[in-house]
Amino acid sequence: MLGRSATGVFWMARYLERAENSARLIDVGFHLALTRGDRSQQEEEWKSVLKTTGQIHDYSAKFSDFVGPQVFNYLLRDKDNPASVLQMIESARTNARMVRTSITDEVWEAINETWMTLRELMARPVRETNLGEVLSTIRRQTTLVRGAMDGSMLRNDVFNFARIGTFIERADSTARILDVKYYVLLPSVAWVGSSLDNVQWDTLLRSVAGDRAYSWLNAGKMDPRDIAKFLILDGRFPRSLAFCYDKVRSNMAGLAMQYGGETEAHELLRDAGAQLHQITIEEIFDRGLHEFLQSVINKTNRIGECIASEYRFVT
């Protein structure tokens, strides 16, 4: 497999995952805007969405306020935003086009259709009345691509690189979402038990589509420690850090088997993964949640870079 093709499938998967995660964050921001009357609180929420996606800086350079439609149009389709959902879908498709011979027709057609559908849907500014449709289409289309990958691709290095891309991006995203909101999970005398907390915690769970699963596992009892434990350490939840790291590791093991050897990236991953398995939520809080999340973000980043250099990615 060409180094360039590995680069292509890796980034194809990452961009798709990133587009989907953006759509989820916008959905949450929108939900809050609907449930909160106070305009300044709404704007705070949109600000934190922009912070989570790392776009607050670019956004502030262009706009001075944080009105809902302005923010979600920026995140979805603004031509000046190189990380808009539409741009990421296009980047995913460009990468897929570059590696067309490595992916199946079904995957290519699913991505191409996704691009065509979303481009048409977002040809004009998105309004509050059709935002829901746009966001659910993004989720549905990216799910379709994942399904096509799952159902049609050989389980070889191509598939491994795509999966590694997906889960590195997802680990990064979950860690960022947690880190932007980590303070709502800290034990704080003033807030405990208030309805504001409940809304904040629910928001956090929703941004990773974990609200239902968490409620089910904890019989509806909201507790900041349990939420943190669920999102960081629960290997059953497909967006938890532990789950993402397990997936990256199993796919890296697949590469080691096919290529007959491990790389430095395997080493890094083993350390980081082992830590996620051994550490308890109490230890995380003792050490400091923010510091812990920062170190996960940095490690994920380093692992991504190391994979790129070990497998001769083209940059």
Binding site: M1, L2, G3, R4, F161, Y259, Y311, V314
Partner: peptide, 20 residues
């Protein structure tokens, strides 16, 4: 394989492609 010029280089008297 579908290759671009940047995937190739000359090594040991052969044209070789950069794989993973």
């Amino acid at each position: 394989e579908l290759i671009e010029g940047s995937d190739l280089r000359v090594m040991d008297g052969r044209v070789q492609m950069r794989t993973t």
